[in-house]
Amino acid sequence: MFSWFANPHRFLTLSSWLAPICYALGALLIAWSLWQGLWIVPKDEYQGGDIMRVMFLHVPAAWLAMASYMGMAVMSFIWFIWRHEVADIAAKAIAPLGATWTALCLATGSIWGKPTWGTWWQWDDARMMSVLFMFFLFLGYMALRAAMDTRQKAARAGAILAMVGAINVPLIKFSVDLFTSLHQDASVITVDGPKMAAVYLWPLLASGLGHSLLFAGLVMTLMRAEIWQRRAAQIRARLMAGD
């Protein structure tokens, strides 16, 4: 199955129509969830009044922060085992976007935390710490790739780091979980089903799906740019060789 996707040409044809669809659907869903979140849903005094509306940005950003790191690690793994170039291109494209959504999660979380908990940042909170260290893992990944001389070396070093990071994430999570947490418990994905009122749940799910689609569209666009860049470099090299 990986090999079917590993063909850059097939990827270019697929993404040429899939990426615009992702953008359009993502924009629609995000717009609807923001309209619902900002004007329609009642505010929740227990979660700080109107400030809780930031949830429709904060929670999807947190989901994407985790999912994008997983995606990067899986792509790195696929590249490391099967050496499919498209997987490496995907991992490279995910890194800056994942870092952006992770930063968005941290920023919106701080803005939400200040009025409700009375602090921008709480060092002994498990989730803030996990997300912060995930942000550092993304930065380290990008810095390492940028420091390597050749594309192949960047891919290999990046893949090793992404995989080491991925097996450490559960350990980091467990260690910071030992601290007591200010952060509220999970309220969407629980054993008993969602604990959240439906009026909040639907816009939140729409926002999560919308951000995921936007993310997927951006990843595909970055990947397309990278593939075209590599082709351009090949053509330039051939011209230089006087072929």
Partner: peptide, 22 residues
């Protein structure tokens, strides 16, 4: 990982920091 990188000190810190956490 940064053995071939000149002045890789900052890179090492950035990579090692999250791994030091537990």
């Amino acid at each position: 990982l940064s053995a071939t990188v000149r002045r890789g000190g900052l890179l090492i810190s950035l990579i090692a920091l999250p791994l030091y956490v537990p």
